[in-house]
Every structure is written in C-alpha cells, then in structure tokens.
C-alpha cells in the first residue's frame, strides 16, 4: 500500500463512523420532523451563534474557573490527608470505615447540603466540587502510600533520605500511579458537580444556560450546549491523559519492560 492509500485508510478508520452517524442524524431529522431532533446543520449554526459570543466569557469560563478551583482544593486536601493517613497504620484503621462511607455518598446530594452552609454563590459551587472530588483522591492516595515498597523505604532510611525529601522522592512518586487514578475519577465527578451545582441555583454558567434553553424550548441551542459539555469532557480527558503519560512515564515504561 502506498503513502496516500495508507493515509486514506487512516482517515476512513478515524472519521468513517462519526461521519456515518452524522449522516444518519441528518436523514432522521429530515424524515421524522421530530421537534426535539433538529438537523445537524441547525445545531452547528446554533453552536457558533451561541458560544462564539460573550457567553464564553460570561458562562463557560466562570464554570471552568470554578471547576478548576474546586478540583485544586480537592487535590491539595485529598493528597495531603491521604499521605498523612496512609503513613500511619493506626490512623488508617480508624479512618477507613468513615472514608468508605463518605466515598459512597452520591456526590450530587452534597449540593443541597452545601447550599445550606455556603449559600448559592461561587463559594458554594467551588465547595461542592471540592467536597465531591476529594474522596476518590483521598482514598487512592491512602492506598498508594500504604503500598509503598518496603525495600525502597529501608533504602531511604539507610541513606538518610527523610522529611520533605522522602516525601518528594519516595512517598509522592511511589504513590503516583494510584494518585493519578484517583485524580482521573475525581475529574469526571468534578464535571458532573460543576453542571449540577449550576442547574440547582445559579444565574450563570454552562449548566444554568443549558437548562434555560431547555425551558425556553430553544432545542437547537440546548443541543449545542450538550455538545459543548461533551467537547469539554473530551478535551479535559485528553489533557488529563497527556499529564498522566508524563507523570507516569517511568511506570508504563517499566510495565512494558517486564512484559
């Protein structure tokens, strides 16, 4: 197969099914006249009109900023507490059932609870996101720190690697595969909470805007919002995977080396 032939095959493999789906969508919307399923062209137009405007500044960016703030808070608290609990077997035994319980609470029920404590402002939303994201990070960090290699630990003791340096070179790095797994779970929870907290009580933000469109029966606009949320989820997952690959390059490399 020559170069162009291979390139064509590759494009077909990647874009074939998505293109097919769009065509089916187009045919369906044309044939059925279903009010809730506008044509793809109409949604694309609505997407451009709706989101390439001041809405980006008024709704999208503030949503993202709150997500980022809440997520960062959760990372700091989750990794910090996770390291402390993971390093102490007694603390871990005492905290385990409590943590299992908090992790099992479906994060969205935190929204009404935290509204009670923190009102309905930005603070509430950041707090909701943080308090939902913190558990998977915390539990995975505890697990990662608990499973630190004993020989490596002894090596650090023998060579005088202690304190902050031990934390940096041994504890955090050693637990990083589990910490990253926790961060990944937390990211999807964070996006869910970002949307829900805005749907509940808000006058701006992505979640609020999409619900507004739905209530106003602006169907194409609503779909464009769903599409935007989807894109957002996709891009954040992509960025996260990049970060993960960088942080864990030693880990995946080792796996390949052993196989």
């Amino acid at each position: 197969m020559n170069g162009t032939g291979r390139a064509v095959t590759r494009v077909l493999t990647v874009a074939g099914v998505p293109a097919l789906l769009v065509i089916v969508w187009q045919l369906y919307s044309a044939a059925s006249q279903n009010f809730y399923v506008p044509a793809p062209g109409r949604v694309a137009q609505a997407f451009a009109e709706t989101w390439f405007s001041e809405r980006i500044l008024d709704d999208v960016l503030p949503s993202l900023a709150r997500l980022l703030a809440g997520y960062a808070l959760a990372v700091a608290a989750g990794v910090g507490a996770g390291v402390a609990i993971g390093l102490s077997p007694r603390l871990r035994a005492a905290a385990e059932p409590v943590l299992e319980f908090f992790r099992a609470i479906p994060p969205p029920v935190l929204v009404p609870l935290i509204m009670l404590l923190a009102g309905i402002g930005d603070g509430m939303k950041v707090l909701v996101i943080a308090s939902g994201c913190v558990w998977p990070i915390l539990l995975n960090t505890v697990e990662g720190v608990r499973a630190l290699d004993e020989v490596l630990s002894d090596t650090c003791r023998m060579y005088g690697v202690r304190g902050l340096s031990r934390l940096r070179h041994l504890v955090l790095r050693g637990a990083s595969p589990q910490i990253m797994a926790g961060l990944r779970q937390a990211l999807s929870i964070g996006i869910i909470l970002m949307v829900i907290s805005e749907m509940f009580a808000s006058s701006s933000g992505l979640g609020f805007t999409i619900v507004l469109f739905q209530r106003g029966f602006q169907i194409a606009e609503m779909w464009s919002g769903i599409l935007l949320l989807g894109l957002l989820g996709y891009v954040l997952a992509l960025l996260f995977r990049r970060l993960e690959r960088r942080v864990l390059s030693w880990h995946s490399g080792r796996g390949v080396g052993r196989a």
Partner: peptide
Amino acid sequence: FQEYGRSLFPWMTVRQNVELPLKE
C-alpha cells in the same frame, strides 16, 4: 539489598539514584 528491583527508585535515572543520598 537482595531485591535490586525494589531498592532502586524506578522514577529516577541511574545517575539520580546514585546522586540522591549525596544530595541529602
């Protein structure tokens, strides 16, 4: 140690592994 696979820091290069105790 006997367990060479576990006494070296997998996230560090050979040089960094040797250097870390000296930095400390």
